[in-house]
Design a protein around this nucleic acid. Structure first.
Lengths: 349, 349
DNA sequence: CTGTTAGCGCGTTCAT
DNA sequence: ATGAACGCGCTAACAG
């Protein structure tokens, strides 16, 4: 393997000159520059990443911290990951995937101490997040996907949940719906201060209050069966419900089944809008879902860029960015059904 | 930040002794061992990953190479990634995600030359894969998820496609189906030598030949609309078809729609089994799909373990492993329908 | 069993 | 505009 010394020899210059030529840290005469790069070319030289990192004290590696949850990552998260990897590469950084136990703060501390990575992008940030507190305290560079309390000076990228819920409700209201429920993620997530669950809940309450509607909402574990049960429970308590807004994509199939089992049809008898989800998911369902889609790709990318800007000492254009979701009307929402008429028809038919 | 030298000083020993104690490369008296670890504890020392890598010529970092396709990664791939990350960590390795343009061999060469990683796990290997050829030629350690031609001595983990297709057909045959078609992935993927597409196709042909049935198969792009069209084309040409086997999970919603648009019901009028997919996908559909599910988590894990064994000079238990898929009967398969009777009923009804 | 020391490959200060 | 030399933190001979 060619080293910098071999390049220097071949070009007839000192190693330091090669280094300067490579990093542009110092002016080099055009002539020697040529010779150096020619030697590099001929030898097929590539700087040794570790050596460079050791000397410069910057590894040009960043970590994407993702929680090693039992239920695994969702589809949405996958796009974070790939886009983050791409963004890192475009900035000549490598991205290591650091899955870890959320409760094990020590593991995170070790990551920061072994000096492998220059900074971390933290996913799934919670309202009061011990990890963030620690990172701040030891002054380790980081950016977040999600937000937490007291982060005025921290870089983050998140979804504009409030606006998203509003758009969902507006869409349904525009179709005449008034009895709308919000199907949240699990109570456990909510109580743990999981941002998306907390913010969507709050937003829904506020929006329904503004409209002088009753705010009906319910927690639901992120799985099919729970969705089925939650829907039935919701309709037992509120028979007039004609639409649901949810961010619980894993529960949706269950909801769909439950609707089906009532001999109802979506969207004729019930409307459903799923927020913060992806096209792939939406198109897999029958009928294809009306959604508010996050540009998740953008989030991973922004998270990484936020961190890298910080590492390079560049001031970011925006320290904190809230991404909107786009309404895509497919076939899970329709005009508010007239249940009374439908029943009468059924009786007479 | 504490360094090894500071630990040595505090423990009153030489740096090398600390190093040996840490790596177990040399016997250390219990007493000094104690002192050393105590000093480490007190100082909160953690070895500097880069320095260690530079000196030992082993970074303990491996890369997961995944193609940066336009359509993004599927659900199945996500589980690869997370399980790979976990497996790496359990072996004290870091996993960097290396997304790259499949056509750009040079990029891969650079990765290997910058000596950041000790080896790579290659995903989505093709029959004749230039990347593999290159890696072999430069003798860079790697393992594959998937297989390619001429790899008798290479480590890989793959799905047992042949058995999987057989299980799918057997299941349908057991329900009385005889007119069964295989809906493949895109012709482009097949012609590019994409292993799964090639092997499932071959397996299906062989199995149908064994059964003296006509082998009906069709390519289909991996998207909803293509699934819809493919199903209709298939039934135009073969009206007696009563079941489909497919590995094209993205096309499935289209197929389901097409069936629905004929006023047919799954599984009463048509059966569908989806192979090499995941529970999550299966449960998202209505009705929930009968599938052959791959243990994708296992694949990512095995891929990295294969590589790490190689790096550590351990002989692997198995160099090449073929993973079976598990049949999960849900509600997309049923007894072969009697179309003639159904039609007569419809006429008389 | 333990200490001394020479690298690993590159960045960077101090000369020139 | 260029060289020489030292140091980053650690591993691994070599030498007791």
């Amino acid at each position: 393997m060619p080293t910098m010394t071999s390049v220097a020899k071949r070009a007839g210059v000192a190693v330091s000159t090669v280094s300067y030529a490579l990093n542009g840290t110092r002016p080099i005469s055009e002539e020697t520059r040529q010779r150096i790069f020619q030697a590099i070319e001929e030898l097929g030289y590539k700087p040794h990443a570790l050596a460079r990192g050791l000397a410069s004290k910057r590894s040009r590696i960043i970590a994407l911290l993702f929680p090693n949850t039992d239920r695994g990552l969702g589809f949405t998260e996958l796009e974070f990951v790939t886009s983050a990897a791409n963004a890192a590469k475009e900035n000549q950084y490598s991205l290591v995937l650091w899955s870890y136990d959320v409760h094990d703060l020590d593991e995170l501390r070790q990551l920061t101490q072994q000096r492998l990575v220059d900074g971390v992008v933290v996913m799934e940030v919670h309202e009061n997040d011990a990890r963030i507190d620690m990172l701040r305290q030891i002054e380790f560079p980081f950016s977040m996907i999600g937000r937490c309390a007291g982060m005025d000076d921290l870089g983050y990228v998140d979804i504009d949940f409030s606006q998203t819920v509003r758009d969902a409700v507006d869409h349904l209201a525009g179709l005449g719906h008034t009895e709308i429920a919000f199907l949240n993620q699990s109570r456990a997530a909510f109580e743990a201060g999981y941002g998306p669950a907390v913010r969507t809940h709050a937003a829904f309450e506020q929006i329904m209050a503004e409209r002088d509607h009753e705010s009906i909402s319910r927690f639901c574990r992120t799985e099919l069966r729970a969705g089925y049960d939650a829907f039935n429970a919701l309709l037992d308590e509120h028979p007039d419900l004609t639409a649901i807004v949810t961010m619980n994509e894993r529960a949706v199939p269950g909801v769909l089944h439950a609707i089906h089992d009532r001999n109802w049809t979506v969207p004729d008898d019930f409307s459903l809008v799923v927020i913060v989800t992806s096209r792939t998911i939406a198109e897999m369902m029958i009928p294809p879902l009306t959604t508010l889609e996050a540009e998740t790709g953008g989030m991973g990318r922004l998270g990484v860029e936020l961190l890298i800007n910080q590492l390079e000492g560049r001031p970011p254009e925006q320290l904190q960015v809230l991404l909107p979701c786009r309404l895509v009307v497919r076939h899970s929402t329709g005009p508010k059904p007239d249940r009374a008429r439908a029943k009468a028809q059924a009786r007479s038919g």
